[in-house]
C-alpha cells in the first residue's frame, strides 16, 4: 500500500527526475526526508510493480517514429488473454490492452500499438504479427494517427493532501 510519502514522491518524480548531480537528494529535500529513504522507496515501488519501469521517456514521434497505428481486434473472449500475451511478445508491439466492446458499431476487445518510421513498415510488421500469432481469422481495423493535439505522457493526479501544490496539473 502507498503511504503519504510514497504518494508525494510519485507526484514529484513523475514530473521528471532533476538533471543535477544529486537528483534524489533534491527530491528528498522537497519531501523533507532523507536521500536514502527516497532511493529505498523507489526500489520498493519498482519491486512491487506499481512502477512498471523507471527511466528515460522518449518522444518517439520526434525521434522519427512518425507512423503510429492502433490496431483493434475482435477476438473471442475465451482467447483474448492468450492472444494478448502472444502479441505482447512481438518486438513490434508497444502496448497491448483488453478493453470493452461497444455493440456492433465497435465490436473490438483487444488493442495493440505499433510504432514505425513509415506506414509501410508498420503494415509489414502488422502482417508479420498476424502470421506469427495466427490472427488471420479475426476481424481488425488499423487506426493510424494523424495529428497529435496533446501528448505529455501519463501524469497521474496524485492527491498529496499535505502539499497540494505538488498535484500535477
Amino acid at each position: 500500500m502507498l503511504d503519504s510519502l510514497d504518494t508525494r514522491l510519485l507526484a514529484l518524480i513523475q514530473q521528471g527526475l532533476p538533471v543535477t548531480a544529486r537528483p534524489y537528494l533534491s527530491l528528498a529535500e522537497q519531501l523533507e526526508c532523507s536521500e536514502s529513504e527516497v532511493l529505498q522507496r523507489l526500489a520498493r515501488l519498482q519491486a512491487t510493480g506499481l512502477i512498471k519501469r523507471f527511466g528515460v521517456i522518449v518522444k518517439h514521434r520526434r525521434l522519427g517514429y512518425q507512423a503510429n497505428a492502433m490496431v483493434v481486434w475482435n477476438i473471442p473472449d475465451p482467447e483474448v488473454q492468450k492472444l494478448g500475451q502472444a502479441m505482447s511478445q512481438s518486438a513490434c508491439v508497444n502496448l497491448c490492452y483488453q478493453r470493452p466492446r461497444h455493440g456492433e458499431r465497435w465490436p473490438y476487445n483487444l488493442y495493440c500499438m505499433i510504432h514505425g518510421k513509415s506506414r509501410e513498415v508498420v503494415l509489414q510488421q502488422l502482417a508479420q504479427l498476424i502470421a506469427d500469432c495466427q490472427l488471420q481469422a479475426y476481424p481488425y481495423e488499423v487506426l493510424f494517427s494523424r495529428q497529435c493535439f496533446k501528448q505529455r505522457g501519463a501524469l497521474y493526479p496524485l492527491n498529496t493532501r499535505v502539499s497540494s501544490q505538488l498535484i500535477p496539473a
Binding site: 518524480i13 514530473q15 521528471g16 519501469r53 523507471f54 521517456i57 522518449v58 505529455r152 497521474y156
Partner: peptide, 9 residues
C-alpha cells in the same frame, strides 16, 4: 527528444 526521466506507473 525526451519528455523526462521518470516512472511509468
Amino acid at each position: 527528444y525526451i519528455s523526462r526521466v521518470g516512472p511509468v506507473i
